[in-house]
Design a protein around this nucleic acid. Structure first.
Lengths: 130, 130
DNA sequence: CAATGAACACTATGTTCATTC
DNA sequence: GAATGAACATAGTGTTCATTG
């Protein structure tokens, strides 16, 4: 489960999304499409529009690794609305792994910010701050 | 030449390197391997170790687009050292394009910093600053 | 038709092999 | 052997198609 943390240039999208999905699942957010909509809304100001397949692939990966458990439900009123959705829950393992992963990602984000700030300084002069 | 600026998640390595290479070429730095060594040294603290093929591919792209001109030279003393190197120079077009590209990349870096800072805030609380 | 998932295609990037003086 | 370049392989991600109730 550490392939996404492998060093290189900047953090991979998959690792970035995994952290957000874990957070949303822990917060009892609901299902895939809702995760997607929430993320698109949040990142719209930054021109980042994740795809549905990236979200699902990440959720499947979390399931395969045993960090989350899936529960099938009906979206609306039973007998009226037959749309099935999948609710995610953190497993005990998932709770532990999330805590660790969150710490690792902090290091990774700091690294990326360092790299970008270095570039800013190299190309646009030292950072001005009052 | 704008494919690397296409919106998405974070800035692509190729675009990042292109900006650095233009800067180094403008500053009369020398040849490919030296660019590579300099960049590896600079980014070592950030765990980023670019590959030689990425550098050359970027240089070839700049050449193809007419932003730079190539000049073959011998590395050491003529008659003694036969190692050939390729020195790069900005063309007139390249000078103009570099200026524009640099501005575009500023916007892109700001966007990436925004995205990462948003994530930092979401996962590790608001940024503390005196 | 919405939600999910799989298949497929393409781009970005890294690793290995080749060449040349 | 160092510098360059090409070929090849893989990873990352997006687009399209399929399924299900």
């Amino acid at each position: 489960m550490e392939s996404e943390l492998k060093r290189g240039f900047l953090v991979r999208q998959r690792a970035f999304l995994k952290l957000y999905l874990l957070k949303m699942i822990e917060a009892n957010k609901r299902y895939g499409t809702q995760f997607l909509d929430d993320l698109r809304t949040e990142f719209k100001p930054y021109g980042y529009h994740p795809t549905h397949s990236e979200i699902y692939k990440t959720l499947h990966e979390l399931t395969r690794e045993g960090w989350v458990r899936r529960e099938k439900k009906l979206l609306g009123e039973p007998g009226v609305d037959f749309q099935e959705i999948i609710i995610y829950h953190l497993t005990d393992k998932g709770k532990q792994e999330y805590e660790l992963y969150r710490k690792q990602m902090k290091v990774e984000f700091d690294r990326c910010l360092g790299l970008l700030n270095q570039a800013m300084s190299d190309h646009y002069g030292p950072i001005k701050r009052k």
